[in-house]
Amino acid sequence: MRIDTHQHFWKFDPVRYAWIDDSMAVLKKDFLPEDLALLLKANQIDGCIAVQADQSEQETEFLLGLAKKHAFIKGVVGWVDLLHKNIENRLEYFSKFKKLKGIRHIVQAEPAGFMLRNDFQRGISQLKSFGLVYEILIYYNQLEEAVQLVKNHPQQVFVLDHLGKPNIKGEEIISWEKNIRALAALPNVYCKISGVITEADWETWTYEDLVPYFDILFEVFSTKRILFGSDWPVCLNAGSYQEVLQLVEKYISKFSAKEQAAIMGENAVKIYNLKK
Rank of each mutant, 00 (worst) to 15 (best):
F221C: 00
G195A: 01
D209G: 10
S256L: 08
L186V: 06
L116C: 07
E259C: 05
N167C: 08
A146K: 00
V234W: 04
I252Q: 00
K169G: 15
K224M: 14
F214C: 12
V133E: 13
I136C: 01
E144W: 10
K128Y: 03
K192G: 02
V133P: 14
G164L: 03
A200D: 00
L143H: 00
W232Q: 12
I136F: 02
L227G: 01
D215T: 14
Y241R: 01
N167G: 15
L137P: 08
V150P: 08
T223Y: 04
E171M: 14
H153W: 06
I180G: 00
D231V: 12
Y134P: 04
G164K: 03
Y140L: 13
S222T: 15
E171R: 15
Q156A: 12
P212F: 03
L132V: 08
S129N: 14
Y190S: 04
Y139R: 13
H153A: 06
Y140W: 11
I216N: 00
L127S: 01
W205E: 12
S256G: 05
V220Y: 08
V196W: 13
R181P: 07
E145M: 04
G239Q: 11
I124L: 11
K258M: 15
K192L: 01
S175I: 09
L149Y: 07
S129Q: 10
G123P: 04
T198L: 07
V133W: 11
K192T: 08
Q126P: 13
E199M: 03
L132P: 08
D231P: 05
S253Q: 15
P233K: 01
W176V: 00
L210W: 01
W176N: 02
N237T: 13
V157W: 08
F130P: 06
I226Y: 03
L163Y: 06
P212Q: 02
W205H: 04
L132D: 10
L236A: 07
E171N: 13
S230W: 07
P166S: 10
L210S: 01
A238Q: 00
E177K: 14
A146I: 10
W202D: 11
W202Q: 07
Y140M: 12
L217C: 03
Y241Q: 08
E199W: 05
W202F: 02
E259S: 11
F114Q: 09
P166L: 03
S129D: 15
I136W: 15
V150W: 08
Q246W: 09
